[in-house]
Design a protein around this nucleic acid. Sequence first.
DNA 1: TTTGGATAGTTGCACAAACAACTATATGCC
DNA 2: GGCATATAGTTGTTTGTGCAACTATCCAAA
Lengths: 146, 146
Amino acid sequence: MPNNHFKRGELYSFITGKASIAIARRLQKKFNGAGLNLTIEQWSVLYHLWKADGISQQELCKATFRDKPSITRLVDNLEKAGLVKRVASENDRRINCIYLTKQAQKLQQQSMDIAEETLNEALDTVDPEKIEICKQVLQVVYDNLK
Amino acid sequence: MPNNHFKRGELYSFITGKASIAIARRLQKKFNGAGLNLTIEQWSVLYHLWKADGISQQELCKATFRDKPSITRLVDNLEKAGLVKRVASENDRRINCIYLTKQAQKLQQQSMDIAEETLNEALDTVDPEKIEICKQVLQVVYDNLK
DNA sequence: TTTGGATAGTTGCACAAACAACTATATGCC
DNA sequence: GGCATATAGTTGTTTGTGCAACTATCCAAA
C-alpha cells in the first residue's frame, strides 16, 4: 500500500479543490465590487500578456494550462470587450499575436493589487513556512500529473 | 505589510488552482478509460449520496459547495443517466429527496478506487507530513474565505 | 515542385457555473 | 383564516471547458 494512502473522508476536498474554488470566487467578487468587468479566466489571460505582450494563442494555452478552443473563446471575449487585439504574424500566417489595448494596460495595477489582497486574506494567520510547504506539495502534484 | 505578502510570480498558480485542475483532469481521464460515463461533478454528487442516500438538493448544495441551479442541473443529468431519482418529501413538499438507483450503487466501489488511485499518483513521492501540512493550509484558506 | 505531415487556430456540441428572476410550498403572526 | 416572509427548487442567460472535427498555413522529403 502506498504511503500516501488516503482515508475516504479526506479524499473529497483534495480532489474538488475547495480552497482554490473559494479563492477564485472571492477574487471574482472583488473584481465585480471594484467595477472591473472581467472574469477570472479573462484576467488569467491578461496576466500573461502583461508579462509578455504579443505572444501567440498557443503560448497562452501553455501558460494558462488551457486547450486551444478555450483560448480561442477567451480571446474572442477579450477582443469583444476591447481589451486585446489579434494580429496575424508576419513570419507565420498561422499564428495570431495577441496584443493588449491601452484599456487593458490600465487594468494591470488595480487587478494585481486585488489579487494580492485576496491571497493575503486567504492565507491570513497561516505560518509562512507552512505556506511554503503547501506550495511545494502542490507543485509536485502538478508535476506528477502533467 | 502582512507576513503572507506574495511575490508576483507565485501568485498565479495559487489562484488558478493548477494542482486541483490537474487532479480533476486525470480523474476524468481514468473514469473515461474505465468506461464510467460520469463527469467529475456528477461523481461528486454521487459521492455524498453514497454516504447518505435520500438527502435533499439543498443538502447537496452545502455538501458539494455549489449553488442551487448547479445542483438542479446536475441532478437533471444524473436522472437522465438513470443514476438517481427525485422523490418529493412526504413532510415538506418543497423538498426533493434524491435517491440512488441500483445502477449508481454499482459504481461506488470502482469509482472510489479510481479516485484513491488518482490521489496516490498525485501525491507520489510527497512526504506524508508535508501532505498533512498542505491539507491544513488548504482548510484554513477555505475557512478564511467561506 | 508536389505532396504528406505537423502546427495554429476555429467551430460545434455537451456539460457545468454564477447570477437573477421566477414558482411553489411552508411557517409564523395578526 | 389570511397575509408576509422564508425556504426549496427551476429556468434563462452568459461564460467557460473538453473533446472531436475542421480549415489554413508551413515545412520537409521524394
